[in-house]
Amino acid sequence: MPVIIVSADDFQQGREIAHRVAGVLGYRFLGRDLLARVAQEKQVSQQDLARALDEPPGLLSRRSRRQRLLSEIEAACLEQLLEDNVVAYGLAAHLYVRGVSHVLKVRIINEPEQRANILAQTGNIPLERARKLAQRQTGGERRWSQDAYQLDQTDPSLYDMVLSLGTLEQDKAVEIICDMVGYRKFQPMTYSRKCLRDKALAAQVRLALMERFPDIRVEANDGTVVAYIQSLKKDQRKKQEQVRQMAGELPGVRHVEVHVIRDYFGQAAQSSR
């Protein structure tokens, strides 16, 4: 059965809704708990992982390290999503799971005023400050997603459905999501499972090669992996061989192809498209 990915600008209510949907449907809830496991397995701090997901890029943040942490999360999350009947929340899955027909992506939005109210209550801060904080959060979300995945996560076209808590009660939102997932459209099939498997494999390969090749881009198709790396002409052959070898050792990889991109600007233009 399908996979549901929830993203929300009202973090607290978003999480609640995702959790309740999982409860109603009897699906597994995949949330930030995953980070603890990743932290343990990969010997990184859980806080760093959470920060990579939450904090907009600052002047001093090291982008490559952040991207690496995000890749860890991405690979782990995709692996979890391969088993159906999951509701994922808070792992940025809506940004890296795209084009998979049995994944229902839901965006929950709330009125800025209400978000400010909640922030004021939970954080015990004056309403005026909470309003500004809420506003900053939206900008931060946008900047974060654009920096990390070259996508604007506040863009509704990323989602199958956008629910506004300004007009819907939480109960109703849960009900709507549960109804929606019943549509045959979101049933998994051989093709969509393959798509998700390809993504998971690509994420694993990318993760494995990232330390050595920070700019690597990976696509996978049924065990065939295509890696795009940047290289100067003189190192090209050596690097290609390296990628081929490193990737070839990974489970599930049957064939590796390496494309070298020498045009840095073209690459920049492409990745921002």
Binding site: E74, L95, R98, A202, A203, R206, E219
Partner: peptide, 12 residues
């Protein structure tokens, strides 16, 4: 990005 474009969007 590991989440490369799906089947359709192919770059030269």
């Amino acid at each position: 990005m590991a989440e490369g474009p799906p089947q359709g969007a192919v770059q030269p």
